[in-house]
Simulated assay, not measured.
Amino acid sequence: MASKSSSGSIPPPPRACTYHVFLSFRGEDARGRFTSHLYDALNRKGITTYRDDNNLRKGNVISDELLKAIEESMFAIIVLSPNYASSTWCLDELCKILDCKNKLGLQMVTVFYGVEPSVVRHQIGTFQKAFKKHKKRHDREKVQRWREALKQVADYSGWTSKNQ
């Protein structure tokens, strides 16, 4: 009979990971620039990376495929850019990433691309404009969840691009 560890806690079972990295980004801000270069560099190193290339889909509901890709990733890179908060898909992805971080041990890093962490944390500038629109279209609880998720990731240490 196997004995329990001295702490009494059992580590979560290993999970199947299809992807090493899930990239979360706002396509119009970063797709042809930073994110494409990052994606290519990761793939050259043999790092299996999920990038949502289907930017033709419309609607407010994040796809099941995206949710599954987040769950099946070991690591998430969140590229926060000036228009990130204007996308409800990005905000839903962010909430799912944080949920997987807490429940599944998903590791994450934040890149501030063309935006300062304080702008994200305090949701000023383009983030403030985006949330004014969201408040008109979405329920208060959902908007608050998105706000809290942005504050949380802005508090993690990450990289700031300084427009490089």
Rank of each mutant, 00 (worst) to 15 (best):
S73D: 01
C95N: 11
I70Q: 06
C95G: 03
D155K: 14
C17F: 11
F25K: 13
D53F: 13
R145W: 02
L104H: 03
S157Y: 05
D155I: 02
L42Q: 11
L66P: 00
P14N: 05
S157E: 01
K103E: 11
L106T: 10
A2F: 03
M74Y: 03
N43F: 00
G114V: 02
E116V: 02
G125W: 06
G158R: 10
T35M: 07
G114L: 06
G8I: 13
L94S: 15
T35Y: 05
V153S: 01
Y19F: 15
S24P: 00
D155G: 07
M74C: 11
H20E: 12
W159I: 08
A2V: 09
N60D: 14
S63G: 05
P82N: 10
M74N: 04
E148I: 08
S157A: 11
P11R: 06
R57L: 10
S81W: 04
N102W: 01
S36Y: 08
Y156F: 15
R51M: 15
Y19L: 03
Y50L: 03
R51I: 05
A76K: 15
A130V: 05
G105L: 07
I47F: 02
Y113G: 01
H138D: 06
R31V: 02
G8Q: 03
H138R: 13
L94N: 13
T110M: 04
L56Q: 13
K96Y: 06
G46N: 09
T48V: 15
S5E: 04
W159E: 04
Q123A: 00
F131L: 04
S7I: 06
M1E: 11
A154H: 08
P13H: 14
V120T: 10
S9R: 11
D92R: 15
R140E: 15
G105I: 05
E71C: 02
R121W: 02
H134F: 12
V79I: 15
R31W: 12
V115A: 06
T126V: 00
K4I: 10
N60A: 01
L150T: 07
K101S: 08
Q128P: 00
P117E: 08
A154S: 14
Q144W: 06
S63R: 12
H37N: 11
L94I: 04
E28M: 03
K96H: 13
C100W: 02
T18H: 13
D40Y: 07
D64P: 12
Q107C: 12
N83V: 00
K142Q: 13
L80H: 07
H138M: 14
F22N: 03
W146L: 02
G27L: 08
V119E: 14
F34Y: 12
K68T: 09
K162D: 08
L91W: 12
V61G: 00
D139W: 04
